[in-house]
Simulated assay, not measured.
Amino acid sequence: MTIPKRDKQAIGQRFLAAFREAGAAEVAPDILLPADTLLDLYGEDIRARAYTSTDPLRGEVMLRPDFTVPVVQRHMAGGAEPARYCYLGEVFRKQDPGEERPANPRDNEYLQAGFELFAHDREADAEVFGLFHRLLAPYGLQAVTGDTGLLMDAVRALPLSGARRDALLHHLWRPRRFARLLARFSRPAEARDLPSTSAPWAGLRGEDEMQARIDRLLADRHAQPLDPAWIARLERLFAVRAPLPGALAKLRDLVAEWTELGPAVLRIEERMAMLLAQGVAPDAILFDASHGRQTMEYYDGFTFSFVAPDRPAWPPVASGGRYDALTAVLGRGGRAIPAVGGIIRPGLVAELEAAR
């Protein structure tokens, strides 16, 4: 269904007005962004999704793939005080066609209307989710939540070396790579022959980086295989998917044998109570423990999305989450402030309205 751009803009303006009513100041980040910050955050994987080019003065640049990073940069440069921001504008993403070109490919340039909240407030997750829940209530969407912090705590609790845990955490958002690593760590370590040499160092990486890599490989030779019981626990955790109260019951069962998950599960319980105070019925929210593995890599806590159940090929109509660590990375001198936000795709909302 082809929706005129002006209709999508009108719907986006409607959401933008609602965000302003919620106390947010409107901002308009640049469309053309320096690529170095995004590459530092995401690694080279971002190239597969973003449009990049080279400017003779600015170096490598990128068409805006999302709003969160430039909004965080703007906020952290101004002092990291509590604040609310909103925005409306285009983002640009390459769409993966899979093995065959889809009959109706999704747009690679589309509108996002977003809301970001920076505050030392325990109820911020519930406030942002409650706002999105109220705005999207007329459209019959399914709310899905998760908690990346829960998954990260699970990985950190594995009886592995620090290097192996770091590798799993790095690939938590890449399920196939994560599974391959986990399978390798469950087998006896490979014997590696890395003899010393007097040959000169060569390559794109520095000598210190290459030596650190060699040291990690040498240390890994002595690592013990991961007990299959831990893999079974991870699989049980990743498979938790149920209405929020039922999912919490399953998570409590896991805590009985995996005590390190206790603080994260307690946070989820407290969040459920806060959502109830926002007028959100917990039974209507689906909790998917693997949800955090399908989101942007900078989310490190609560995550959410709103999906159209009768349109399985669609991306989420809205999505968001908590990204506390990102503010520390982009803040000056390691300064940080808790932050949570989300976006709505006005183009998809326009299609839902047109189909009524």
Results as ranks from 00 to 15, higher is better:
V69M: 03
R156L: 12
D30T: 14
V27I: 03
G59D: 04
L63H: 03
H75I: 04
D147N: 11
C86Q: 01
V155L: 11
L63I: 06
A80T: 02
M76I: 03
V71Y: 00
P29D: 00
R122Q: 13
D45L: 15
A35N: 13
A157N: 04
H75R: 00
E123A: 15
G89I: 02
E123I: 10
P105D: 02
P138D: 10
P65H: 02
L131H: 05
Q142R: 15
F115W: 06
L141N: 11
E123W: 14
G140H: 10
L136A: 10
G146F: 06
P65Y: 05
M62V: 15
A22I: 09
H75M: 00
R49H: 13
A80Q: 00
A119M: 03
A143L: 09
R106F: 09
G114W: 00
V128Q: 00
A157D: 03
D107E: 11
F129G: 04
L32H: 12
Q95Y: 10
L136V: 12
E123N: 14
G140C: 05
A124C: 03
L131A: 09
M76P: 02
A83Y: 04
R165W: 09
E127W: 08
L38C: 11
M76C: 01
R20M: 11
P56H: 09
E100W: 12
P105C: 02
G149H: 05
E21S: 15
Q112E: 04
